[in-house]
């Protein structure tokens, strides 16, 4: 404040200056926190990416000296990558279908019907997520051997569904609860039959929940190791299992290369969903009309 007389505290000008300083300080703090958080989340990804393309890497350096794609090639030689990826995706797809088929009616019942012992039921549904997967996995693999489900895509998918169904039920029962019964009644009175109402009113309103369920289902299935390990076979080996095997054999770089591939489907789905979830499609936003 050069030629202008010093702004006395309390004048409009001084207050404006102070407010501006406060705003920039807050903005700086916000960006710092955001950046640190991003690094915290993205750091491990970066490490994997770098490892996957590093030729040789002696400790203490941030970046490897030489870049290479040989680990991907090596991974290819160790296992049939397209087949692994196909297995992973087919199993994930089947798991999502099974989980929605079981989870949607359950969620609807929990949200819209009067149910006795509701709390107990929810606890039961969540149980598979509460116990270590190995506990379920051992029992599952025993039963699956009896039914010939081991080393079939559908079998592994069934095993994965045990973990995905609780997620679907949680997400979708909250979504269905947000659906106003009167809006459904309005559709009926307007002349729409159950199917028309389901497709043109219910479906668009619960779409965000459905997409979230699918995304979580995909991630859960792609990442699941324990249950896959106990139900897979030569025909159904997945990327995740192969990654673990690579680590146990000492090929850390190969494991990193496999992990990079593993990220791709989730990322694609995430981007697709990001575009789909528009604010006006959110049931929650439309509720308190």
């Amino acid at each position: 404040m050069s030629a202008v007389p010093e702004a006395a505290p309390g004048t409009v000008r001084a207050r404006r200056v102070a407010a501006r300083a406060g705003r920039s300080a807050r903005r700086l703090l916000a960006y710092t926190v955001l950046l640190s958080f991003s690094l915290y989340i993205l750091g491990p990804f970066a490490a994997i990416m770098v490892t996957a393309v590093g030729q040789e890497w002696f400790g203490g350096r941030w970046f490897p000296g030489t870049w290479t794609f040989k680990w991907f090639t090596f991974a290819r030689s160790l296992a049939d990558l397209p087949a692994l990826l196909t297995n992973s995706l087919v199993i994930a797809g089947l798991s999502i279908v099974i989980s929605l088929a079981v989870g949607l009616p359950t969620a609807w019942a929990l949200a819209k019907r009067q149910i006795r012992a509701r709390g107990l039921l929810i606890a039961l549904i969540l149980l598979p997520r509460m116990v270590p997967p190995i506990t379920i996995g051992l029992g599952v693999s025993r039963e699956f051997y009896n039914f010939g489900l081991v080393d079939t895509h559908i079998g592994v998918a069934f095993a994965h569904s045990i973990l995905i169904i609780p997620l679907v039920v949680l997400i979708m029962s909250a979504t269905f609860e947000g659906l106003d019964d009167r809006v459904l009644e309005a559709a009926r009175v307007c002349g729409a039959n159950s199917f028309y109402t389901l497709w043109n009113v219910v479906r668009p309103l619960v779409m965000p929940g459905l997409l979230a369920s699918a995304l979580f289902g995909l991630i859960t299935s792609l990442n699941e190791f324990t249950l896959t390990l106990l139900t897979y076979g030569p025909r159904t080996i997945t990327l995740t299992v192969q990654t673990y095997i690579a680590i146990s054999q000492g090929f850390k770089e190969v494991a990193s290369a496999l992990s990079v591939i593993l990220i791709i489907p989730s990322l694609i789905l995430l981007i697709l969903i990001q575009k789909q979830i528009k604010p006006e499609n959110m049931v929650g936003g439309a509720k308190g009309l």
Binding site: R182, V183, A186, R188, V189, C190, V201, N281, A286
Partner: peptide, 20 residues
């Protein structure tokens, strides 16, 4: 006759418009 076959109009207390 089910609701959708009765062809009547209904105005709701909470409006019950289709939010989407």
């Amino acid at each position: 006759v089910p609701t959708h076959g009765r062809h009547i109009g209904l105005v709701f207390q909470n409006f019950a418009l289709f939010p989407h």
